[in-house]
């Protein structure tokens, strides 16, 4: 059990410090245009790297994942909100999964 708490300390502590230290340390505005540009592209690049291609296998079935993501993507392209797109993606994937188990 002490083992669990030592592990928890390392897990939570390292995750916290890697977030907090740079946030506290960088006080000035970065003026270098390349660094600024790099930092502004990071959020989108991270999200896409997490999504492609892992999301294609998220439901355990390639067809339902890809169709769910595609329909969600179409609504995202039409500027629908986060919750709406998330719910549509899940709903469509569930529908495809159900149809696939029936046939």
């Amino acid at each position: 059990m002490t083992d669990f708490f030592i592990y928890l300390l390392i897990l939570a502590g390292s995750t916290y410090l890697i977030r907090a230290i740079p946030f506290v340390a960088i006080k000035r505005n970065i003026t270098n245009v390349y660094v600024r540009s790099f930092l502004s592209y990071i959020p989108y690049a991270v999200l896409v790297a997490m999504t492609v291609p892992s999301a294609f296998y998220a439901t355990g079935n390639l067809a339902s994942s890809v169709i769910g993501l595609f329909v969600g993507g179409v609504f995202a392209f039409r500027d629908k909100g986060l919750t709406f797109v998330a719910v549509v993606s899940c709903g469509v994937a569930l529908l495809v999964d159900l149809i696939l188990t029936l046939i």
Partner: peptide, 24 residues
């Protein structure tokens, strides 16, 4: 199981909604 599996797509749907509009 089937509901569980579909729910796993939620987070990725959210990512799409964050990335696609600005990328467009």
């Amino acid at each position: 199981q089937v509901v569980m599996c579909a729910l796993c797509l939620a987070i990725y749907g959210m990512f799409l909604a964050i990335v696609i509009p600005p990328a467009k």
